[in-house]
Design a protein around this nucleic acid. Structure first.
Lengths: 187, 187
DNA sequence: GCTCAAAGCTACTGTCATTAGCCACGCTCG
DNA sequence: CGAGCGTGGCTAATGACAGTAGCTTTGAGC
């Protein structure tokens, strides 16, 4: 039996890719094993089980999202930064629906959970956007939750096919960015 | 064997209640059967399978949410209506996390799908809120998607424990309602 | 009281996650 | 170069579930 040369990172990466292809609900250990060229039980040498796999995919997704948003924002401020961040976030969710879905409904176990750290990074990227607006210190957390709810809500609703086809979805998103920008500038 | 006197509605109602208790992911046919006092295969006389059950729970949840939002809005207009609708929606999701979670990621099969009709009812309740604002005809769909994204995003993030405990969540939600109100009035 | 469709049950199958326990590969160190 | 050994792979088996087949019983309508 030739070694497959797997390690946890490779298994998680393959799992994330597979989740994007077939949906997180249809990501089975058997399918993932086949994808990486190994029998099912061998996966357990690298991840502790489906739960662990899911958490690692979620952490990967949050880190990637943070990277995408963070680098999209580079060099912009105010409205441009807001637009860049929101568009980057939505693009990420639509390109990687499976791995992003892995982040839903998973609570971090503790303060040193890699998922929690990744979530903080993503939050930090959005915090940077807020620095371009005159938001009172006491309102920063509220504004952050607003942006997170908006982006998360819109992206997941669209990803789940929750919008009817009556109106162009991209247009709605741009409208939503302008709405948030106006609101933040009027503080 | 005495008859249990079940029908599809009773099975779906019990399933929704159970989903709220244990979470949609842990809602198994065996658990539901035990809850309604029947063996597992008997459930299949009333629902076609887990998929069908999930869709029916989702339709029930959307109808109940539409009822809650619709009646909360009664007699209010403008900002009061918006606040009442948003609070009613969030309260519903937090009180019934399981059945609301059943609506996520389920696409309506066709135009006569009960779920689609229920979704339309919920949308209609929010449309009524918008009548208290001077929103241009061409912007109604965008504004609707904004409200839906906001409420859905906030409620699901909170329900999943997605917010840190640093700032009061109720306060954030009230802040968010004021933000949306200001934005809609400024059109 | 008879009929019969509906609603229940037992028994069974197939899929999946997970565990136990075995074995080969290939690196390290003498 | 060869022995030792940890790691990563495998087969086999278990247990939870969803779903199906086919039998039995109930009870409503005649």
């Amino acid at each position: 039996m030739p070694r497959a040369g797997l390690d946890p990172a490779a298994v998680v990466a393959a799992g994330a890719a597979l989740a994007d292809e077939v949906g997180i609900a249809r990501l089975t250990m058997g399918l993932l094993a086949e994808r990486v060229g190994v029998r099912t039980p061998s996966l357990y040498k690298h991840v502790a089980g489906q739960n662990d796999l899911n958490r690692r995919i979620a952490a990967l997704a949050l880190n990637e999202a943070a990277d995408a948003v963070g680098s999209a924002v580079q060099g912009y401020a105010g409205r441009d930064a807001l637009g860049a961040a929101a568009r980057a976030f939505r693009a990420f969710v639509l390109e990687h629906p499976g791995r992003y879905a892995a982040t839903i409904g998973v609570e971090p176990t503790g303060p040193d959970d890699p998922m929690a750290a990744a979530g903080q990074r993503l939050l930090g990227a959005f915090t940077a956007v807020l620095r371009g607006y005159e938001v009172a210190e006491s309102d920063v957390n509220h504004a952050l939750r607003l942006l997170r709810s908006l982006c998360h809500g819109f992206a997941t609703l669209q990803s789940a096919g929750g919008f009817q086809w009556s109106t162009d979805v991209d247009e709605s998103f741009e409208w939503l960015i302008r709405f948030a920008d106006r609101g933040l500038r009027a503080m």
